[in-house]
Amino acid sequence: MANYQQLSLNHLSFTYQHDRNPVLDDLTVSVPLNRIIGIIGNHHAGKTTLCRVLAGIVPQIISGKLTGDCQIGDQSPVRDWPAYNQQTGFVLQDPHSQLSGLADTVADEIAFDLLNHGVKETDIQQRVTTVAAQLQLTAQLQQSPDSLSGGQLQRLAIATAIVTHPNVLILDDPTSEMDPQGRRDFFNWLKTVTHTTIVIVSNEIDELCETADELWILEKGHLVSHGTPLQVMNHLNPEWQVTTPMVYQLARLMNWPLAIKPTLFPVTLNQLRRCVNVNHSNQ
């Protein structure tokens, strides 16, 4: 039954110690590895807690009652910590507390994980420069992390998470403090990441539909919908109170369904382009 090529949750439930009600309630789903999974939902949906389960933070560091199973590849964050932790990158909602609290410069901050992992000093410099270039932090390498803006700090947090080349990358609302251009750059970068299973919580529904392979909707601890963005957005329940991407809103208003599946409306620019071409050529 075990499939080592996928991320799977099996009747996963979690209750914090200080709480009586489960925050995650009976989640079952599976996705092949190396995909981008977008998680959406409103507050009290359990998004952050799900990220914590996937990173092994609960129940290892924050205690509570976990039932069911969570398996990523051939490892489980619950059973195989800390080996699993070595291969996982995590970006917290609050980038300020992502910092080690003991670094004079951005370069030091990025090097922190590598030092901890015992990487040789000669390799460290090279890897730090590469990652900094990827996240447009080269100019800030010798600055103090305290001097960065919110958006830059979020990019630094991402840099510290990916510098160890993780197999799994978990991002909890990584763009909240970025400006529109920074956000667009980030999602463009995200598309270029390969060989990594990425789980991203975000409110940016338009960008999620463009980048994610899978979309999960959480509502009050339940997984109420999952599938491709196209499927999920076309089968929303108004009770979930989830917004739709602007491409979809426009297509609905203009009545531009997909050519191949006329019951569905597009959710990405490319899908829109195709169905508009078809519609235009038909008229």
Partner: peptide, 11 residues
Amino acid sequence: PQRMINYFKDN
């Protein structure tokens, strides 16, 4: 908040 008290107590 209770979660904060619990966290430090646990750890």
